[in-house]
Amino acid sequence: MSEEQKDKETKLERTNNVSEPQSEESVKPDTEVPTDTAAEAETGSSPTANAPASTGADKPMRAPLTEEEKAARVQAAAEARAARAKAAAEGGEGSAEAPADKPARTRDKAEGDAAGEEKPERPARAPRAKANEEPPKPKEPSPKQPLLDRLVAMLKADVAEDAVEDAVINYENDHLPTVTIKNEHWLSCAHQLRGHLEWSCEYLRNLSGVDQETHLEVVYHMINLSTKAEVAVHVKVDREAPTVASVTPIWPTADWNEREAYDLLGIQFTGHPDLRRIMMPDDWVGHPLRKDYESLDSEV
């Protein structure tokens, strides 16, 4: 365990804007820690599990964490994941599941969706042993990691220092760079993503709203058709007064997608030319896709 501790710290040195070592963002580090360590006590391959162990006790529940802490944690998790992915690639077929499982989970934690996430059940897997043979090795970062770093740097420089809350690579999804951007800076970031020479993602593929139980979220996937650079963006929205800047002026394709998110989840898009219900009848009350939606006729 100690080597992972040490390794974690060395990784943290490499990240920028680090003021403190790992900190926990998830709401339930305590519940996850015992099962985590229990499941992997024999293998000891979870540097991320160590993080909760060390800070879980003093972490306030749901206290907002600074971006640096989140970025640092996530950076560490990303590199841990990269190493495990590499290990899995070398280790054999079954072990692919082991790394994919845990790092994805930590990434979820890192992105701050708190209460909605419970510990995933993990069937006992023999192949885990293989993945654990090589974790302490410095992880091979994803090929898209430099891309992600440049993006984060660009957004920080051009928009605001704290615009980017989180930046990870989604390994299973073909190493898709995923950033979480703060709500108030989203419009400027979107302009950057569309206009900046290096990125100019002119094709917005997907815009979906998500109901993470503590907050709502809007997820954008975009791509530059000529360089095939893709980015996924998460923007967190308050649950009580969900408003997000509309990107319809930038990408006209967002028009109906945002109407659908408004209709089914209740997210208000400021600046949208014509925000009204699209799927449900115009006089419908409520937003069906929310987790706490009570349907009129629950027998159906």
Partner: peptide
């Protein structure tokens, strides 16, 4: 599936169908 997210897309006869 392990916790995480995924956006997979293929070319259907009508265009790009994606599953997030």
């Amino acid at each position: 599936p392990p916790a995480g997210e995924m956006y997979a897309r293929i070319e259907s006869p009508r265009g790009e169908i994606g599953c997030y």
